[in-house]
Structures are given as C-alpha cells and as structure tokens.
C-alpha cells in the first residue's frame, strides 16, 4: 500500500471526493472500504480506495443472491456439525521453544516481538483488560 502520512481515516473523511460523483451507492461503498481499512490499520490512497470500492461492490452483489433465499424456517448453524462440549483437561503441555516462533517475526528485541510504536504515551505501559482495541489512530507519529 502506498503510504500517505496525512491521509485521514474514518467514515466521513474525503468520502465526497473519493466516490463517483452523484453516485450514492458508490460513495457508501467508499466509506465502507475506508472504515474497514482504518479498522484493519491499512492506509489506502485515493485511487486504491476507488479500486477496492469497485471490487467490494461486485463481491457484495454476488453475496446479495443469498439474501433472496427464504431461511426463516432454518435453524442457524453454529460451529462444526452439531457437536457440543468438546473440551480438554487442564493439563500443561510444553510450549514451543520461543526461537521457533520468534524466528518468524520481522523483528525481535530481548525475546519480545518488536513492532512499530503503537501508543505514544510517555512512561506508561498500556496494560488493560483483555478486551477492546486501543488507540487505533494513535498508531503513527
């Protein structure tokens, strides 16, 4: 992806100019792609956005066929087959040697995965609950 440092992400950003003029459907798609890209931490240039929006449109159109089917009487399927209660005992098994996993990482420091700075906050280790994302949007200087 082309880097665009001052490119704004978010549903409203540049939606008007990026979508095909006067085409409501197209603009919605561009917004959708933009929002999805922001959530996935991807930066798309304006031409890329347009290209993706067009591709998204075709994919969604194909899937729209499914919504024509009447599934009111069908039980939703969750998980594999109709199995239930597949569990394991609480037994510790050996972990993988750290080198095995770390050797796949682009960068390693002192046994840690080293990634681009994702939170800009002086002197704080961000250690929060196991839920929720943190500070998307604060992920670059």
């Amino acid at each position: 992806m082309e880097s665009a440092n001052n490119h704004q992400v978010g549903p409203a950003a540049n939606a008007g100019e990026a979508g095909p003029p006067g085409d409501g459907q197209g603009r919605n798609l561009v917004e959708l792609v933009q929002r999805t890209a922001a959530l996935a931490r991807l930066e798309l240039s304006a031409p890329e956005l347009e290209e993706m929006a067009a591709q998204f449109g075709r994919i969604l159109e194909q899937f729209a066929v499914l919504s024509e089917l009447d599934v009111d009487a069908v039980e939703p399927v969750r998980g594999r087959a109709r199995e239930q209660d597949v569990t394991r005992g609480d037994t510790v098994t050996p972990s993988l040697a750290p080198e095995k996993l770390l050797e796949r990482a682009p960068q390693v420091e002192d046994g840690f995965y080293a990634v681009p700075k994702t939170v800009l906050r002086a002197g704080a280790e961000h250690d929060k609950g196991g839920s929720s994302a943190l500070t998307p949007g604060e992920d670059r200087a």
Binding site: Q107, E109, D110, F112, Y113, A114, V115, P116, K117, T118, V119, L120, R121, A122, G123, A124, E125, H126, D127, G129, G130, S131
Partner: peptide, 27 residues
C-alpha cells in the same frame, strides 16, 4: 481469552510478550 502484553516505554519499538495471550478470563 486474555490478550498479550504490549510495552511501550522501552526503546524505539513497542515490545510484545504473548505469555498472557490466551489466559482464561471472566468479564
């Protein structure tokens, strides 16, 4: 499941430790 730990105050990178990733939680 718990997430891993990201440390931001050491050096130029964010450092990630995944020992905590997958620890059982209740919320």
């Amino acid at each position: 499941e718990d997430a891993g730990k990201a440390i931001h105050d050491r050096g130029t990178h964010t450092l990630v430790d995944l020992n905590r990733a997958g620890v059982p939680l209740i919320e």
